[in-house]
Measured scan of single mutants.
Amino acid sequence: MAAAAAAGAGPEMVRGQVFDVGPRYTNLSYIGEGAYGMVCSAYDNVNKVRVAIKKISPFEHQTYCQRTLREIKILLRFRHENIIGINDIIRAPTIEQMKDVYIVQDLMETDLYKLLKTQHLSNDHICYFLYQILRGLKYIHSANVLHRDLKPSNLLLNTTCDLKICDFGLARVADPDHDHTGFLTEYVATRWYRAPEIMLNSKGYTKSIDIWSVGCILAEMLSNRPIFPGKHYLDQLNHILGILGSPSQEDLNCIINLKARNYLLSLPHKNKVPWNRLFPNADSKALDLLDKMLTFNPHKRIEVEQALAHPYLEQYYDPSDEPIAEAPFKFDMELDDLPKEKLKELIFEETARFQPGYRS
Rank of each mutant, 00 (worst) to 15 (best):
G8Q: 13
E12N: 11
M13G: 14
G16Q: 11
G16M: 04
G16S: 05
G22N: 08
P23E: 00
N27A: 09
I31E: 01
E33P: 03
G37E: 15
G37R: 14
V39M: 09
V39W: 04
S41P: 00
R50N: 02
I56V: 12
T63M: 09
Y64D: 09
R67D: 00
L69H: 02
I72G: 02
L75K: 00
N82G: 08
I84T: 00
I84P: 02
I89V: 11
I90E: 01
T94D: 04
D100M: 01
V101S: 11
I103N: 13
D106W: 00
Y113N: 15
L115K: 01
K117Y: 07
H120V: 09
L121D: 11
N123D: 11
Y128W: 06
I133P: 02
R135F: 01
K138L: 11
A143G: 07
V145D: 01
L146P: 05
L146F: 01
H147T: 03
D149F: 03
K151C: 10
N154R: 10
L155Q: 15
L156Y: 08
I165K: 07
V173D: 05
V173M: 12
D175L: 12
D179R: 12
H180W: 08
F183E: 10
F183I: 15
T185M: 10
E186V: 13
V188K: 08
T190V: 08
W192E: 12
W192L: 15
P196I: 06
P196L: 13
L200S: 13
K203Q: 13
S208P: 07
D210E: 13
I217S: 13
E220M: 08
L222R: 07
N224W: 10
R225K: 06
R225A: 07
P226N: 00
K231S: 01
L234N: 11
L234W: 09
L237I: 06
G245S: 08
P247L: 10
E250M: 02
E250H: 00
D251I: 00
L252K: 08
N253W: 10
I256A: 09
Y263Q: 07
Y263H: 02
K270C: 06
V273W: 01
P274L: 11
P274T: 14
R277I: 15
F279V: 12
P280H: 15
L287V: 02
K292E: 06
H299K: 12
R301G: 06
I302N: 15
E303D: 15
E303S: 06
E305V: 14
A307Y: 00
L313C: 01
L313M: 15
L313E: 06
Q315E: 03
Y316P: 00
D321F: 05
P323Y: 02
P323D: 03
A325L: 06
K330N: 11
M333P: 08
L335D: 11
L338A: 09
P339W: 10
E345D: 15
L346P: 10
F348Q: 12
F348H: 07
A352P: 02
A352I: 04
P356G: 08
G357H: 04
G357Y: 00
